[in-house]
Every structure is written in C-alpha cells, then in structure tokens.
Design a protein around this nucleic acid. Structure first.
Length: 104
DNA sequence: AATGTGACGTGAC
DNA sequence: GGTCACGCCACAT
C-alpha cells in the first residue's frame, strides 16, 4: 500500500490546476482540501511532480517562497499581477490574493 | 532499523 | 513583524 495514493496525487494536481491566475494557495490549504495528512506531502508532490502545473501559485503560509525558488516564483507571480512587497506575498488582510477552494 | 532531509505549519516568546 | 522548537510525513542513505 503506497503511503500516498495516485488518487491523492491527482487530487492535488487538480486543485493546483484550478487556482485562477492572479491568486495563490498555501501548501496547507491544498493538503486539507485534498485530504492529505500533512502539508509536507503537498511540498513533496510539488517537488517531484510539478512539471506541468502552475506550481508558482502555491506558496507557504508565511507568504515567502522557499529560497531556491524565490527569484523565479516571484517573477512568475508578478507576471500575472501578484505583487510582492519585500519578497513576500500578502496572504492576510483585505488585499489578500489567497485563493479559497470551493468544495462543490 | 536509524538518521537525515525537505517546495510546511503552528505556537511560544 | 521575527526566531526557534517541535510536530508532521514520505523518501533517501
């Protein structure tokens, strides 16, 4: 029995793909929406299987991208209108760009 | 089997 | 707002 099922991976992929341009979601949001037991699993999936996804719309809850992605991710986000102040995307407050998944 | 690593999160301070 | 410790969990050595 695999620790992470293909179905869960597909669910994560679908969720990431469903994030509209100009919005972002956190690893934790995706983990809970996909039924994963830990946000780290989301990170693991993105690390291994992110090739054909808008991975740049997935960000840590602090709004700060991991160091090895910092430049690239902020550039891609800026290109679709997501502004970062001091290398940090605003995930709290009225001007938050955080995406909330609708559980239809 | 044990330890290390990581695209994370939360709570304490 | 920031740092630190700890929990978390799959994978690699």
């Amino acid at each position: 029995m695999p620790a992470v099922t293909d179905e869960q991976v597909e669910r994560v992929r679908a969720l990431v793909a469903s994030i509209p341009p100009g919005r972002v979601a956190t690893y934790g949001d995706i983990a809970s929406a996909a039924g994963l037991s830990s946000p780290r699993i989301t990170g693991w999936i993105m690390r291994t299987d992110s090739s054909d996804l808008p991975w740049h719309r997935v960000i840590s809850a602090s709004g700060r991208p991991a160091e090895h992605l910092r430049t690239r991710q902020l550039e891609l986000l800026r290109a679709e209108g997501v502004l970062a102040s001091d290398g940090r995307v605003r995930l709290t407050g009225p001007d938050s760009v955080r995406h909330v998944f609708d559980l239809a």
